[in-house]
Design a protein around this nucleic acid. Structure first.
Lengths: 202, 202
DNA sequence: AAATGGTTAAACTAAATGATTAAACCATCT
DNA sequence: AGATGGTTTAATCATTTAGTTTAACCATTT
């Protein structure tokens, strides 16, 4: 019984993720999700009551995955440069595994910006910690006196944007060649940290 | 007569832009556009035949505005660093004036990536020119030997991302304070070019 | 002022879609 | 075998929505 339930529920979640990621909330159709899962449309409502609820499950999960937890890394006893290298490598690796994550989250976040604040609360992330961590490095004189805000924005932008804007950048940068663009993304793991470190070193 | 037509047509375009920018193609409703324009829904179809056609008009315009034309700037007889400063300042200024442009274009580009290639043709932009321009600077030894692809991606990412991800970044960076975030965006005009130049100088 | 032709609106249509209901199904227990 | 209770489906509902039709409107021309 239980295995039955988790199986179907899981099946639905995977199908819903696929469809929502591709079409967004407004473009997704319950029928299409049902087809994708190979089940009857009424089952979706049986398990999740409404499109909203089903979407919420998918979105919360995606949001959690998209917002990186950097706290452990920040406290580690290594140089700031090394911290950046590790973060960038890990985060871009994750994005390579879930390439539609940025465009999905950004689209939905823009569609409904109000509910985002409470989302941060739910996943227990305190943004200020990261900024303070960077400020400490400035105070210690390890990096040049740039506003932590700007540094953090730069790191995230450089990691995420190539995924969020892939359809455009793939044309502009690699003649719309998917394989070439994948190479470009691989190279960014080293390139982004080199770039960041270069720009903030004393 | 003519002024009548262009007036109504313009009215529709402005209303459509407002609604499409906020809700996206799938979330937008013809009725809402009509309300926004203060006219009857049938008039939308009278002037634009279909939702698709109306959207196409809005999207083409937005796309054109979003893709910067850098050719003149690239050929100007000034240092590469100065070119970057000018581009970044102009582009971020434009984005400050049309802040929803990035999220709208990126959302729609991801929803329908296939049609983008021909869009570039229509607006007469040859992406390779920009990359070649950067390569020339590398060859001349003006900047360090970084792949032009990476440099261009970095410049665009740093300019666009703070607008595309504003609802998230505003919480993380400026405690969800709109005025503070606007200051942050202003500061980026200087910050981004400083950042780029620092990272590619020999 | 009557006719003409473009413009606007009200009413309507057909299809799609999220949601509900009621019945069928199926495994487990007695 | 029959009852029980959760699971799945087919059929249906109510609403929304893009698009159409028909008539009213209005300025210009004759």
């Amino acid at each position: 019984m239980i295995s039955q339930e988790t199986d179907t529920e899981q099946l639905i979640l995977e199908a819903a993720k696929k469809v929502f990621f591709k079409k967004g909330y407004d473009g997704a159709r319950m029928q299409e999700i049902a087809n994708e899962a190979g089940i009857n449309k009424a089952l979706l409502h049986y398990y999740f009551r409404s499109k909203d609820k089903l979407f919420e499950a998918i979105f919360f999960n995606a949001f959690q995955q998209f917002i990186p937890s950097v706290v452990e890394n920040l406290n580690a006893d290594i140089s700031f440069e090394r911290k950046i290298e590790i973060f960038v490598e890990n985060y871009i690796n994750m994005l390579i595994n879930f390439p539609q994550l940025p465009s999905f989250v950004l689209t939905e976040v823009n569609r409904n910006p109000e509910r985002i604040a409470e989302m941060f609360g739910k996943i227990g992330i305190i943004p200020s910690v990261i900024l303070q961590g960077i400020q400490k490095e400035v105070d210690k004189g390890n990096i040049s006196a740039v506003e932590p805000k700007q540094i953090l924005a730069n790191i995230v932008a450089l990691c995420v944007f190539p995924f969020a804007a892939r359809p455009l950048l793939q044309i502009v940068l690699t003649e719309n060649d998917t394989a070439k663009y994948n190479v470009f993304l691989e190279e960014r793991k080293k390139e982004v940290s080199r770039f960041i470190i270069n720009s903030i070193k004393i």
